[in-house]
Amino acid sequence: MNWKVISDNIKQEKRIAFLFIDEIHHLYHFVTVAKELAKTNKVHILTYNSPNPLLYKLLKDIKAENVIVEELPTYTFRALTDKLKKKKIPRKGFWIKKNTRYILNNFDAVVFTDFFHKYLLKDRKQNSPKLLKFPHGTAGRAYAFKNNELDFDFQLLVGKFQYDQFKNMGLLGDFPVIAGYPKIDAVQQIPQQEFFTNNKPTVLYNPHFDPEFSSWKKDGLKVLEYFYAQTEYNLIFAPHINLFKGNQNKNTITTIPEHLFAADNIHIDLGSEASANMTYTRAADIYLGDVSSQVYEFIIEPRPCIFINSYDFEYKNDFSFRFWKCGPVINKIEDLMNSLEEVQKDFKNYKKVQERISAENFYNEEGSSPSERSAKAISAFLNGSLEMLEL
């Protein structure tokens, strides 16, 4: 741990706002911390009108009765154009501008899981409220490391690897706290599911949404057709939740032929709750992907992985492809059959690598959970009792 509490006698109640104006996968990264903070503080989740029902369901599931949800409007005209454009989530910049004064005047701290903070940063006085940054996943490629990190007064980090990368890139603020991965707390009570009635190995295909790196555009349908035509494996196709959202790559459900949805050995989920809460990473025996950092959640329990390098990236000395150390990398789908056979036989060669990477990624500590440690550090920070230790 890189921090300690100077005084445990923290009694001053603070008003803390968590912003939820994103897709559902952001929820799991902060709800359990909100629950812990609400034991000693006034905690609000500020969201848009008629948010995804998962917000309320998840708060009920984790018994976060003390957390207050406020549904705040966007500008009337923008709400109308959002409706015409069939946007379920209001445009974030307009929503924040509409509610800036309320947020600035009513909270001691505001928590972000993404970078939509510039309006509050510009308009706040005397560095109040404090701006806190949570990650919404494990740090993967270089895009996860942005100079905007330095805009925040407090950074919640999940492990030593993220801390070291931030330090090397000059992205550590004054209060970068390593506390672990709160999402683990949010999903641990979800029962593990079975999706197939046979005993065949199940492969999870999890392509990323970024068209520059994703295997989907070039090879995705080849992967699905490969599993449709064979009889040895089951397949869960659960891509990054944004692959089939909006206009990303012009992907729609009609991109996928109907016979694939009807296959007994293929389960397709293009963005449900299960695709965001580790249901599939827990259910699969083998991971098949490209650059999604979800693989880091998969290898919490070490298992075979295969990666598709659709665009022949030079990856071996690039930390952005660090996850490709967890299994073999193939350049063409024709190599998939042999790779599936070999990766199960040779997994011992990768197991220690996966265990090392997981230890670097996720801080653990006996006697407390990531959410408890996060809440304790935030309360201490807001009360001036947090001391940072040099690592």
Rank of each mutant, 00 (worst) to 15 (best):
T32Q: 10
K130E: 04
A79R: 10
H117E: 13
S292E: 02
P51R: 10
M337E: 12
T231V: 10
Y119S: 08
K160M: 11
K217S: 14
F196C: 03
F112S: 03
Y228M: 08
L27C: 01
K97D: 02
Q162S: 10
Y287C: 01
D22S: 14
N105S: 15
H26V: 04
N265H: 15
L386Y: 04
K86A: 15
F227R: 02
N199D: 09
L260R: 10
P302T: 15
C326W: 02
K218H: 10
L80N: 07
F237A: 01
S292N: 00
I333P: 00
N234L: 05
T100A: 15
T254G: 12
G180T: 06
L157K: 05
I21C: 04
I89W: 02
A139N: 00
K348A: 12
I306V: 15
V158P: 03
M278C: 15
G159A: 08
R124D: 09
R356L: 14
H26C: 08
S7N: 15
P73W: 14
K86E: 06
A144P: 06
N41M: 01
D151W: 01
T47L: 11
D108K: 10
W216V: 05
L104W: 03
D153Q: 04
K218T: 09
Q188D: 07
N383M: 12
L46Q: 00
N317R: 05
S128D: 09
D22E: 11
N242G: 13
H208D: 07
Y363P: 04
V187D: 07
G246T: 06
S379T: 13
F107N: 00
W95G: 00
D185P: 12
I256D: 03
K376T: 11
D61H: 11
L336T: 01
N127P: 02
N127L: 14
Q354C: 02
K11L: 12
K218D: 14
F18K: 01
A284Y: 01
F321Q: 01
P211G: 09
Y226Q: 07
L260A: 14
V329Y: 03
I190S: 00
V203N: 00
D185W: 09
L55K: 07
H208N: 12
N383A: 12
L121M: 04
S339E: 07
F145I: 02
T81E: 13
E360T: 03
V43C: 05
L58I: 13
P328A: 03
E273H: 12
T100K: 13
N9E: 14
L59C: 04
Y56I: 14
K87V: 05
M337L: 11
V329Q: 01
Q248E: 12
F298T: 06
G246C: 05
S272E: 11
W3P: 04
D346P: 03
Y163W: 07
A229T: 15
A238S: 12
A375S: 06
D164P: 01
K57R: 11
T81S: 10
L121C: 08
V33E: 02
F115T: 11
D185M: 14
W324K: 10
I253G: 03
N206S: 15
W95P: 12
E355N: 07
F196G: 04
L386K: 11
V177Y: 06
N2F: 03
D8F: 05
K122F: 09
E360P: 05
Q126T: 06
N247P: 00
D219R: 09
D61N: 09
H136T: 07
A229E: 15
I89V: 11
K118G: 05
P176T: 11
S371P: 08
F195V: 07
D219E: 12
V329F: 04
